[in-house]
Computed example of a mutant assay.
Amino acid sequence: MSVLAHSAPGASAPHVWGSADPWTHALRTGRGPLFLHRRDGWLLPLDVERWCAEPDEADRTVLGRCRGSVLDIGCGPGRLVGSLAARGVPVLGIDVSAEAVRRTERAGGPALVRSVFETLPGEGRWDTVLLMDGNIGIGGDPAALLGRVAEIAGPRGTVIVEAAQDEELDELVEVRLHDGRRAHGGAFPWARVGLAALLRHARAAGWAPRLTWAADARHFAALHR
């Protein structure tokens, strides 16, 4: 899985991210450094090496909770999509990066170059939707994103979301991609939410927690409608 992709309607981030040379280079080489850069100089490291590797133990706790058909939003290089496809699970990854989609396909999984805010195959019928590796930040509005996911998932569908380590973290920032030397491209909105904040946003969007868990210092929630 990768992380960042897509944006809310009307924002420019899909074009920024989908054509971002540092991200394309990171996907092709399978390594960073790569960061999200805030105007005040703050840098958030992006875990490119992990995303381009095989699923780790924490990932496997998520894979084991996927039921039925699975949509991976912001699939990145496709470690989860490829693993699910190898198990015979009906799965699709979407990402605004063409290179991410190519890597996902090479990993053995189907994927489309698509934003979550565009029309998607199987809308209203997906059993499990994944928002991993910080992808709850897409568009800078977690409640709006979860509202969109409610349109995508089936009536009894589940969304599995990865939250930030800081449980109370709830912030909206404008960021650019940074390769460790300089920032690239235009700024786009991004949200970071810990578990407590995630559950507040989820309730506002009509989701309720089914289960929360932690693995290898990563935090997850499975939500149902």
Rank of each mutant, 00 (worst) to 15 (best):
I160N: 09
G74K: 07
V161G: 05
W190R: 06
D56F: 01
R176H: 04
E171M: 09
R106K: 13
V91N: 12
D40Q: 07
G157V: 11
R182D: 04
W213C: 10
V113K: 03
P22V: 11
H37M: 01
A111Y: 02
A143R: 03
C66F: 06
R60Y: 01
H37P: 02
D21P: 15
G78N: 08
N135H: 04
L195S: 06
L112I: 06
H37W: 00
Q165E: 11
E99T: 14
A205R: 01
G78A: 15
A107Y: 01
A183R: 09
V175Y: 00
A164R: 06
A100K: 08
P121A: 11
R176D: 06
A85D: 04
A8R: 13
R192D: 00
W126I: 10
L145P: 01
E171N: 10
G194W: 00
A111I: 09
H224V: 08
L172K: 11
T24K: 11
A144F: 03
G186R: 07
L211M: 08
V161M: 05
T158D: 02
V159C: 08
S2I: 10
A13K: 03
G124C: 15
R203Q: 02
C52I: 09
T212L: 08
R67I: 12
N135S: 13
P110K: 14
L4M: 13
G147V: 00
A197S: 13
R114L: 15
R102N: 12
R203P: 02
P55A: 13
W23E: 12
G76Q: 05
W126Y: 05
P189D: 11
E54G: 13
P121C: 13
A204T: 00
S19Q: 09
R176E: 07
R87I: 10
H37E: 04
E49S: 14
R31H: 13
A53R: 05
V3I: 15
P90I: 02
G194M: 04
G194V: 07
I94N: 07
L80A: 15
G137V: 03
L172N: 10
D166H: 08
S69N: 03
M1N: 02
P142G: 08
R67Y: 04
E49A: 15
A187E: 00
A11H: 09
V149C: 03
D72Y: 05
G64Y: 03
G134C: 05
L80H: 13
I152M: 06
G124F: 06
L120V: 02
P77A: 13
H6S: 14
F117Q: 07
G124Y: 08
L27E: 07
I94R: 10
G140W: 00
L169W: 04
D21I: 14
A98M: 11
A214S: 11
P33C: 14
H15D: 13
P121S: 12
E105V: 14
I136D: 01
T212Y: 04
G137R: 05
V173F: 00
P77Q: 15
V175C: 03
I138Y: 01
L36G: 08
